[in-house]
Amino acid sequence: MTAWTTGLTDIAGLVCVALFLAVMLLGLVVKVPRPGRDLRPLHALRRLRQAIFLTVESGQRLHVSLGRGLLMHQQMAVGMVGLRALERLVSMTAAGDRPTIVTAGTGPLGILSRSTLHSAYETHHWEERYRPTDARVTGLTPFAYAAGAGEVIATENVAANFFLGAFGPEVALLADQAAARGEFVAAGSDSVLAQAVLYAVAEEPLIGEEAFAAAAYLGAGGLHATSLIAEDVFRWLLIALMVGGALFKLVGGHP
């Protein structure tokens, strides 16, 4: 590949990012889509909401697990969505008897989840409900993390679980333990491997980019909701490009 084509590819990439941003911002100006009205229903998240309300009603706990997102890795993106969802979930469960508990498998996520918990309670003037130990790093290797989070599932009066973040196949251990105890499990990840095992084990798996839409569906609003529009626009663009490219090649064209 020549330097010229490399430069062209780089600029095309930058233009794509700029376009993506423009569509997101345009959505803010035109109309922010709202879950339940403008967004297609996501069964897993709908059931999650129901499970959360039943959890609050029964005086039990919601357990949110944010996975093993590394600070400087794209896996952190789904971890950030998890943090936003956590903020929303805390406000939905703050009226309950037992506070939401969070587990993470890396230091940065542990720090951020603790900060998010504090921030969410502070926003609702319920600072006294915040306990630093409600956000925990449960292990530093995948299976150690799963074992530690499994202990939370088993001992903390959990009724509903939401796993959203970067996981590997170890997430199956968590989901299986929760399922064996009759707890509700909704789970999403950016990893294909984790999605494959979650499909078999979790009660409500989130597939593909559904994990990234979770915060928007839980009412994060604003740019979270408009980024779904941008994702849809670019998804159709990609489909058109792939189909067009295949047809082009089929008729003998050379890119």
């Binding site: 993106a77 593909g208 740019l223």
Partner: peptide, 29 residues
């Protein structure tokens, strides 16, 4: 898997842009 990863990539771009815009800061300070 590729289809799922493309969707994940779009989600990652959106998340990255939200962070760049400073709108995605659920944590405090």
């Amino acid at each position: 898997a590729r289809g799922i990863l493309l969707g994940v990539a779009l989600g990652t771009v959106a998340t990255g842009l939200r962070i760049l815009l400073g709108s995605d800061r659920p944590y405090g300070e």
